[in-house]
Design a protein around this nucleic acid. Structure first.
Lengths: 225, 225
DNA sequence: TTGGAGATTTTGACTAATCAAAATATAATA
DNA sequence: TATTATATTTTGATTAGTCAAAATCTCCAA
């Protein structure tokens, strides 16, 4: 029942690997190992132990998937992480680009009691500073699809809602370009050959690679659901 | 240089064991093991490793003592712990009787950067909610002697300044008796035979055992240094 | 259908931290 | 001084988590 920080990190990584996949798909061991910064053999060993405790289902040479119990735990780790991140920004006045690493440690140390207080103090928020949804106390996570700067309609005002990368350097770039969550922008051109996307902000027009553009999720302003 | 939570806990326990002793005295292994909730053999093994890393000096069959390096580290752990405790009370509105266990976990997870912010937010406080002194950023800890309810003059107004026990049950008892840090009280009688001390608070008179009385440190109101 | 290439698993070894229980040292008592 | 009680150290084993490198599997392409 008591998951070690390591176990929590495995579950979180599997959850995040899974959420990029279609339902019922398995997360390949190589990807998991890479996400956790361990060698593949280590991931295999650990995942077999997790399967033993009923937190994941593991298919050799295929990959790993969370069970209901594992997902419940993973979501709670994510809840702690994201509430802590928002707390660090809103209450402690830290920069949204630098709270991820701090939260990475604190997510394993904060008690349920403290998390409840943080949640209440912040008014039961829906999203963290990067736009990632915060699961509620019952473990329900608001999951709906967004466009990205790569898929949204051209020359249409959209609002940045989420940044799918926690790298401080990338986040600082986003901040410099005024593309943080909440900003209204407009994709002016996409150049498939150059693999680039140009985005117009109130201040200026920024051009970035497709890979970066795909990490910026947006909502159409006219279609708020 | 990077101390694991376990190492931090050992250093902290040795520091606290030491501070009840005369200068240069060794903390006996049995006491250390008991404080950490491990069997004596475990403490011996660990302490030998700490000695290897230059954090403690260890004398077989005598005990263990912090080196300068070890003390520096221990003090920083204490600083984190106490700042976190005060933060939980002042900012998060938690009860002073219940913050110790939470801080016990957080002290190993908060970064220097966050601790700095907490320290600033609280206005560089001197003591935590139990009256324990908070070492400053340079590691200087304000150490001066107090009386306890067992040693202070009789029928003289004194102020409770520190409670030397983190047990929530004990703390709740102290709270119920209105003997928390800051309260003005007066010892009316001491009964050596009955091993008891009677203390007059504004509300009522409480009688407690000598062991409990010795855990309540006080300052003479007329002699504020 | 037969190689590879690339991913995955296995094997053996290692570190940190722990315990149980036997061995030993120190201190206290007779 | 001899004996006993108590504290401490040793020894051998265990668990969690990890790596390096060898062995194995899967799948695509020739």
């Amino acid at each position: 029942m008591l998951a070690s920080p390591t176990v929590e990190n495995y579950l979180k990584a599997i959850y995040q690997g899974q959420s990029a996949l279609a339902d019922g798909q398995h997360v390949p061991m190589g990807q998991l190992a890479a996400a956790l910064g361990v060698v593949p053999g280590t991931a295999t060993t650990m995942v077999k132990a997790l399967a033993e405790s009923g937190l994941v289902s593991y298919e050799p040479y295929v990959g790993v998937r969370l069970t209901v119990a594992g997902e419940k735990l993973a979501v709670m780790v994510l809840r702690r992480h994201r509430l802590v991140e928002l707390f660090l920004v809103q209450v402690m006045g830290m920069n949204w680009t630098e709270v991820h690493d701090e939260a990475e440690h604190l997510e394993h140390a904060v008690s349920d009691r403290l998390i409840q207080r943080i949640d209440a103090m912040l008014g039961h928020p829906q999203v963290d500073p990067h736009g990632d949804p915060i699961p509620d106390a019952s473990g329900t996570v608001d999951r709906h699809e967004y466009h990205s700067l790569l898929t949204c309609p051209l020359n249409t005002r959209v609002t940045v809602t989420r940044v799918l990368d926690q790298n401080p350097t990338f986040l600082k770039f986003i901040e410099d370009c005024a593309l943080m969550p909440g900003r209204a922008v407009e994709v002016t051109t996409r150049d498939t050959a150059a693999d680039s996307v140009s985005v117009k902000t109130p201040d200026r027009t920024v051009t970035m690679g497709a890979r970066a553009a795909s990490k910026l999720l947006v909502q159409l302003e006219t279609n708020p659901i």
